[in-house]
């Protein structure tokens, strides 16, 4: 075993050649895009740039994940970002987005699986995401995979998620996946799971929906499991 003096000498010699060899790589505050929902923004300070985010929720029950996404898109476009939505199964509703405040002229909408192509819709979505992430300039890129069967998304190799997280790390872009279950594991900088609470009906109209968010993973610290931000969504006609 080397003596402390030898270790110090070696360290000195290595640092002379490679100054950052023994220093820690600190993550600077790299900015975020607010979701527009105060309780979530207070808890996670918005959706982080330079990172991969997963927003999960059921596709059978109304979980609120799409509404959360619309609110995020509205804030991102309001901040003069150009956004891209890769719509895996063509489920995006422009009227809802406009009602949520999304500036549609700042949104690129890619509708996968609408024509007969060599690639299947899920493969198309990932390929297009790759192109957009590489092209740079988009503040927010959303890939909506929530309508794909879970067994298909689970088959996506972990290396794909890892590649996305590494590419987006160098760009001022928030990469958001909308899914039923989280899949990116440690590659994700933020994982939110959204669940619904009973809807409020006044007379013959739905007026409000309550939602609950569970923070499964964040960049900086272990998420407080007990803290689950609540928020409500108004209906467009309320």
């Amino acid at each position: 075993m080397a003596s402390p003096a030898t270790a110090a000498l070696l360290r000195h010699e290595i640092e002379a050649r490679i100054p950052a060899a023994f220093s820690f790589c600190t993550r600077h505050d790299q900015g975020s895009i607010p979701t527009g929902i105060a309780s979530i923004d207070d808890a996670v300070q918005g959706i982080p740039l330079h990172a991969l985010t997963e927003i999960c929720g059921s596709n059978l029950a109304s979980s609120g994940k799409t509404s959360l996404l619309m609110s995020l898109l509205a804030r991102a476009t309001q901040q003069e970002n150009f956004c891209a939505l890769i719509d895996g199964q063509d489920a995006f509703d422009p009227a809802s987005a406009e009602a949520s405040g999304v500036t549609l002229s700042r949104l690129l909408w890619v509708r996968c699986g609408k024509t007969k192509q060599k690639l299947k819709p899920l493969e198309q979505a990932f390929k297009v995401a790759d192109m957009l992430v590489q092209s740079a300039g988009f503040g927010l890129i959303v890939i909506d995979l929530s309508d794909f069967p879970e067994r298909l998304v689970r088959r996506v190799p972990h290396t794909s998620w890892f590649r996305f997280s590494r590419v987006v790390e160098r760009q001022p872009t928030a990469l958001v996946f909308l899914e039923r279950e989280p899949h990116a594991a440690s590659c994700a900088g933020l994982v939110l799971s959204v669940k619904s609470r009973p809807a409020v009906v006044k007379g013959a109209l739905f007026t409000q929906c309550g939602m609950e968010v569970e923070i499964l993973r964040t960049l900086e610290r272990k998420p407080p499991q007990a803290f689950r931000p609540l928020f409500s969504l108004r209906s467009q006609w309320a």
Binding site: M70, A91, T103, S105, W109, G137, D147, F206, L233
Partner: peptide, 30 residues
């Protein structure tokens, strides 16, 4: 469900106003 798709351009585009409280969004089945 009627909508249109225009050519996307990164040229100057107006910025809209956000609603104060998020609204429920519809996922379309097409």
């Amino acid at each position: 469900g009627s909508f249109a798709v225009h050519a996307f351009s990164s040229e100057y585009a107006l910025v809209g106003m956000c609603t104060e409280r998020p609204a429920v969004a519809l996922r379309k089945f097409r």
